[in-house]
Amino acid sequence: MNYIEVENLCKSFTVRRKREKGHLFREKTTVQALDHVSFSVRQGELVGYIGPNGAGKSTTVKILSGILTPSSGSVHVGGRVPWTDRKAHAQHIGVVFGQRSQLWWDVPILDSYLLLRDIYRLEENAWKTRLDELTEKLKLGELLRTPLRQLSLGQRMRAELCGSLLHRPELLFLDEPTIGLDAVSKLSLRDFLREENRDHRTTILLTTHDMEDVAALCSRVMVLGHGKLLFDGGLTDLLSRYDRERVIEVSYERETVLSGLPNRCTVTQTGSRYRVVYDPENVSTAWLLEYLQGAGSIRELTAQGQNIDQLIAQMYREMDL
């Protein structure tokens, strides 16, 4: 049984351009933000939703959470249509925006949680138990009486997470949750999300530009570009498609000239240090190593694959995004 069911989802916006000289009215153009997107997600899945800026990620999340009404297509989340059953739907989902606060700025965060208890009509006991659980896991105990504005970015993100999980949502949307966080905060946040997903079978949809987040958390990724779903599957599958090039960095004892390398290799030079990017399919690794060794006396040599961000960038390029 699928928890999220999206079929042929379309959303278009009319954008009014600036009035041009000589035209009486401003021209209207239609922008197709989502173009027949279909996918489904099972309960308890942890899915990464990636794509370049303006691909339609936020639009999808806003439709799935009931903020926007789509132009056409059908969406069911836990059997509900988000925008028609908005209030009932809201009771079962939680949303965290990395760059936007949903708590009250000037009061202690505990006050915010008390107000959320009333907003979500939570029972006192259920609320208390859940709050204790979350404050312990998110290490918020000592911060409960501090106003939100005095918290650091990392603390604030934890506080936001707690606020959006108090009502035990079945589905959690995370929009760039780790943006601007330091390494320690990032790691502990990921641990927390993994636990939450495991212990409560919370379905999590994560939109992010941080591929480390996706690699650490998500077994499945969906790639969106120009409003279309371009890939849906495992992260390793996705990466292996683009993971072709290898990089060799080599430095010589003396100034050495590398000439006669095939132009399928990209070479960049800094002093006596060279960086060679090549595709083992086209250029034989054995041949290349032999050539490099023959060119002079090697002081140091490293070989590596491309990092995840480079791969994604290459994927976007090849998909023409």
């Binding site: 806003k62 009931g66 908005r86 209030k87 809201a90 009771q91 989902i93 936007r100 949903q102 907003i119």
Partner: peptide, 18 residues
């Protein structure tokens, strides 16, 4: 502008109430 209306739409209460 600040997206507070979005937040209100995410909560199980009437928008005008919020």
């Amino acid at each position: 502008r600040t997206g507070q209306l979005d937040t209100m739409l995410l909560r199980p209460r009437g928008v005008l109430t919020q």
